[in-house]
Design a protein around this nucleic acid. Structure first.
Lengths: 214, 214
DNA sequence: TGTACATCAGTGAACGCGCGTTCACTGATGTAC
DNA sequence: TGTACATCAGTGAACGCGCGTTCACTGATGTAC
């Protein structure tokens, strides 16, 4: 059984009552929303506070600084990953495989569509070397990569995937496609690529890479 | 013949002499260097100026703000792309193809290793919707994507690549692998993936996607 | 059911630093004769 | 070859705003009896 989630506390360590939890949540939501409009570089505590019609002082009751709110948002977003992992772990035999690949790609893109701004900042901070964001990202992504790698490894042992393909590297490459395309698939319209074509094409590449079959 | 590059001017429109061009360049270099150490969010005009042992006033003689320096850096970095495009346009027949794929992946990773910080910020700003950065990124990437797409299209017409694969989408997927993996290949050490394995694996995926052959 | 008190949650208002930004000036370099 | 003047390049110093941050306080909610 999972241990009970430790209760939320404010900056001075006091446990939050229901009203306070509501305020905290509104601050989180407002930050996520603001992040879609303004650049990270321009995200201000004052604006977050204003957005929920409260004072900066309230903000500081719940968060140390802007980075911390974003970190919490990143954690929330990353918690959605397990669904994809289960999908990967299913059977890839025959026609099932391609359908599965499609669902995975689609789920990933929807995930990014929902959390664009937050995931973008998570990856930035992670790439910039921030350990906390790196950990959050790893926590979300490594189960996916591991699961893919296991499938690829199996296909490799069965002789369907070439020996030069390193399962983890290939899995990471697939994750890269998923992340990067999800992040800017809107822009691809400029190349005359629709969302469906993107999903279909990525699904084929994913399927092929995981199973070694076409 | 390419038109002569329009001469550099300062913020008030005056043409820069050699000494001024030197200062400008040092400001650019210092910014690139700083960007590797600090988060974009913490990049300050004052620090850039200090880094080249000059005053903020000097900075403003050459650039409107921090964003503009970074934009210029992004343009510079993006100018290196043509080499990769030529590589893509060569022959992918037989053993040449795989060797070519390796060189492309390798060149991309080296490119990113050289310009990590700048390219990261370029992509962030681009994803955040900044039109100037988006244009710079497009200018660098679309020739690559177009070139890959043409090759894939050819393989598709020759019946070696499945009809469900949309050439531009597949090309974009390859670009996604290249960009994303290049951006965080260091981290992949955690999965026990070496740089060589990464290149080799990505090269195979690229080769396979472009030629339809294994 | 009402009153007193304790705790919880939110905030007005201020402080002060850091940073962006500018201006009037100085010093460096180039050029005419 | 030296001097005077023009232009180029750099900067000291200041201004002021915006923002992060805090503190002492008020108001809201809960609880005991």
């Amino acid at each position: 059984m999972a241990p009970p989630r430790s209760p939320l506390v404010d900056q001075s360590g006091r446990v939050l009552g229901p009203r306070a939890r509501g305020t905290r949540l509104r601050l989180l939501d407002a930050t996520a929303e603001l992040l879609e409009k303004v650049k990270v570089r321009d995200l201000r505590v004052v604006d977050i506070a204003r957005a929920v019609e409260t004072s900066p002082a309230t903000f500081y009751q719940y968060f140390k600084d802007v980075e911390e709110v974003v970190l919490r948002l990143a954690e929330q977003a990353s918690d959605e990953m397990p669904a994809v992992v289960e999908e990967i772990e299913g059977s890839w035999r025959d026609a099932q495989g391609l359908a599965r690949a499609r669902r995975i790609v689609d789920a990933f893109i929807r995930h990014w569509d929902r959390h664009q701004a937050v995931l973008r900042v998570r990856n930035l901070a992670s790439d910039e070397g921030d350990r906390r964001f790196r950990a959050v990202r790893r926590k979300a992504l490594s189960p996916v990569i591991e699961a893919l790698a296991r499938q690829i490894e199996a296909a490799r042992e069965a002789g369907r995937v070439r020996g030069e393909i390193h399962p983890h590297a290939a899995a990471a490459a697939m994750a890269a496609i998923l992340e990067r395309l999800a992040a800017y698939h809107q822009e691809l319209g400029a190349f005359g690529v629709t969302r469906d074509q993107l999903v279909e094409t990525s699904a084929h590449i994913l399927h092929r890479t995981v199973t070694g079959r076409d």
